[in-house]
């Protein structure tokens, strides 16, 4: 109930602020998807065959002054998890303060972006979420405070955050009181080459050790990610290594994504995408890992990527031989528009 009140307060505050703001940016983005899932490519045993809208984002960004702006994003989800097949939840709701003593730095407060790995700027070259999101290591938004900014001469980016650590989906008694600490650094030593890493730490006995037994089973959590991205002309390659520890259970994996942007070579705005993921849920256990390959193509209808048609095939292969490989064919249309009202 408490977090619902906080959410309601944030929504009303930002709606009010957007009304009084001098300049407000509105953005809307929606994905419509057809997905066919089948268990075995030979027998073609269909397990899913549906059209749905997995995401719809509505964002309002009121500029309250040159140094303070807000961001408020509603996430419309149409899935079997929602009530009557659909639900709405708050994704981001934060204030952004700039004009700090350190040049090009900002402080965000509220339901903020989680600056872990690539989750905060992943632009979905394929329909699937990025590795740390997909394997539920972190959530893309969380309640807390972040100090972030740019290094001089565009040499890199940094972020230090104190967050709830539970993500934006948990509410009420499921949310513990202990903070999670995040450090994220990205460096660009040469144009097109980005190296970086993030570290997330949460000790759930920090503030309320007496409640640990009754409320929380996992007391220590540490996650880190190392990443390398390379972008040159038509070629874009990224690799990330992800590790997660919850008490004595260690998980690890990696994700490789390659994109060929033909728009830089020929006058057809098509992207060819390949992705390979590997994830081991418990390094000490056997047969609990899986690998995933995704191959896809994106057709941009407009140069600003306002309408994108994505077609992809993916296959998840399990170490556990009793589990059948899962195949998906996904056709997705993504479209977005934005406007600024003064």
């Amino acid at each position: 109930m408490k977090s619902k009140r906080i959410t309601l307060f944030l929504i009303l505050s930002l709606l009010f602020l957007s009304v009084i703001a001098g300049e407000t940016k509105y953005k809307f983005e929606i994905w419509s998807r057809y997905q066919a899932s089948f268990l075995n490519e030979n027998e073609f045993e269909l397990t899913k065959n549906q059209i749905y809208s997995p995401r719809g984002y509505f964002t309002v960004e009121p500029k309250l002054s040159d140094y303070i702006k807000g961001r408020f994003t509603l996430d419309f989800v149409s899935s079997e998890n929602g009530v009557d097949g659909a639900s709405v939840r708050l994704k981001y709701a934060y204030l952004d303060f700039s004009n700090l003593p350190i040049k090009n730095s900002n402080i965000n407060f509220g339901l903020i972006k989680n600056y872990f790995g690539t989750i905060y700027d992943y632009d979905y070259p394929v329909y699937e979420t990025e590795l740390s999101d997909k394997e539920k290591v972190v959530k893309s938004a969380d309640y807390g405070l972040s100090f972030n900014g740019l290094l001089p001469a565009g040499f890199g980016f940094y972020a230090f955050s104190v967050m709830n650590g539970e993500g934006y989906k948990k509410t009420d008694s499921k949310v513990d009181l202990n903070p999670a600490f995040l450090v994220n650094v990205r460096l660009i030593p040469i144009t097109g080459l980005t190296v970086g890493g993030s570290f997330l730490y949460e000790d759930k006995t920090l503030l309320s050790p007496e409640s640990v037994d009754s409320l929380i089973s996992d007391s220590l959590r540490m996650a880190y990610v190392g990443l390398v991205k390379f972008k040159f002309n038509f070629l874009s390659i990224s690799f990330e290594y992800l590790s997660n520890r919850i008490d004595s259970v260690f998980s690890a994996g990696y994700s490789f994504i390659g994109v060929i942007n033909s728009d830089r070579l020929i006058d057809i705005p098509v992207e060819l995408v390949g992705r390979y993921d590997s994830w081991d849920k418990n390094l000490d256990a056997t047969d609990d890992g899986h690998k995933r390959i995704i191959a896809g193509t994106n057709l941009n209808f407009f140069k600003d990527k306002g309408v994108i048609m994505q077609l992809s095939y993916d296959r998840t292969m399990y170490e556990d031989t009793t589990k059948t490989d899962v195949n998906n064919v996904v056709f997705q249309m993504k479209w977005k528009f934005s406007n600024t009202i003064n």
Binding site: L150, F155, I188, G192
Partner: peptide
């Protein structure tokens, strides 16, 4: 974003834009 060859500007490029450009492989 690689959509044009030349950007016309009546102001200097910002640090944020330089960062985005470098990350995107644009020198």
């Amino acid at each position: 974003e690689g959509k044009v060859d030349i950007a016309n500007s009546s102001r200097k490029i910002k640090d944020k834009e330089v960062y985005q450009a470098k990350e995107n492989g644009v020198n």
